[in-house]
Simulated assay, not measured.
Amino acid sequence: MPGTSTHLIKLSVGTESVESLTEWQETARLRWPDKQPRHVTRMWPKRADEVLNGGSIYWVIKGVILCRQRILALEEVIREDGIRRCGIKLDRPLIRVEATPKRAFQGWRYLPPSDAPADLSAARAREEKLPPELQSALAEIGVR
């Protein structure tokens, strides 16, 4: 698609690993009619066109960016409290990326494509997974 693209970055609070994020999403997605996972947030991206132009959400797990998911759509979600929220509809596979340390922050942030960690090759994605703390320590010293 022509035009500018950008990504989102979000802490996956309470998640211990990419596998536990996958497990949580597999359960949570069943509540949606199309069975696609979503992340529901209070704020609607002002740069929605850029996010929907090939953007992904990059997940920070225990202080390390470890994976991403392609963003399929942004949908209005109104819960029991009547407040309008943004449902970020996500593609199902979590794509592992180079472990990149990231300090804690609240909510989500924009992530320019130039700052996004590279996807791991298929061979690297199948390697035995290191604990996030070790991945973070290695990334801090430049080992990816």
Results as ranks from 00 to 15, higher is better:
Thr4Asn: 11
Arg126Asp: 13
Pro2Leu: 15
Pro93Glu: 04
Pro101Lys: 09
Arg70Thr: 11
Glu50Pro: 05
Leu72His: 01
His39Gly: 08
Ile83Glu: 12
Arg92Ile: 14
Arg42Cys: 07
Arg29Gly: 08
Ser17Thr: 13
Met43Asp: 09
Asp91Gly: 08
Ser12Leu: 15
Lys62Ser: 07
Arg144Gln: 13
Leu111Arg: 02
Gln25Cys: 04
Arg31Phe: 10
Leu138Arg: 15
Ala116Gly: 03
Lys129Val: 14
Ser17Leu: 09
Thr27Tyr: 13
Arg68Pro: 06
Leu72Pro: 02
Met1Glu: 12
Ser12Arg: 09
Leu72Lys: 10
Gly55Glu: 07
Ile65Asn: 00
Ala125Asn: 02
Leu138Glu: 03
Asn53Gly: 00
Ala139Met: 03
Leu74Gly: 01
Ser20Lys: 09
Tyr110Gly: 00
Arg124Gly: 02
Gly142Ala: 10
Ala48Ser: 14
Ala118Met: 11
Arg96Gly: 10
Arg124His: 15
Pro112Asn: 06
Ile9Leu: 12
Leu111Cys: 00
Leu21Gln: 06
Ile78Leu: 08
Ile88Ser: 05
Lys129Asn: 13
Ile9Asp: 00
Ala125His: 01
Asp91Trp: 03
Ala118Thr: 12
Pro93Phe: 05
Gly14Tyr: 00
Ile88Leu: 07
Leu134Gly: 04
Leu120Gln: 08
Thr100Pro: 01
Arg126Ala: 15
Leu72Met: 07
Trp24Ser: 13
Ser121Cys: 02
Pro33Thr: 12
Val77Gly: 03
Arg84Ala: 11
Thr27Trp: 14
Cys67Ile: 04
Glu140Ser: 12
Ala116Asn: 04
Ala28His: 11
Pro93Asp: 00
Ala118Gly: 09
Ile83Ser: 06
Arg68Met: 09
Gln25Asn: 14
Lys62Gly: 05
Val18Leu: 06
Ala137Pro: 01
Gly54Met: 03
Ile9Arg: 12
Glu98Leu: 10
Pro45Trp: 08
Pro132Met: 06
Trp32Lys: 10
Ile95Ala: 05
Asp91Cys: 06
Trp32Val: 08
Val97Ile: 09
Tyr58Gln: 01
Ile83Arg: 10
Trp44Arg: 08
Glu80His: 11
Arg38Ile: 06
Ser121Gln: 02
Asp115Glu: 13
Lys46Met: 11
His39Met: 12
Leu138Asn: 11
Thr15Pro: 00
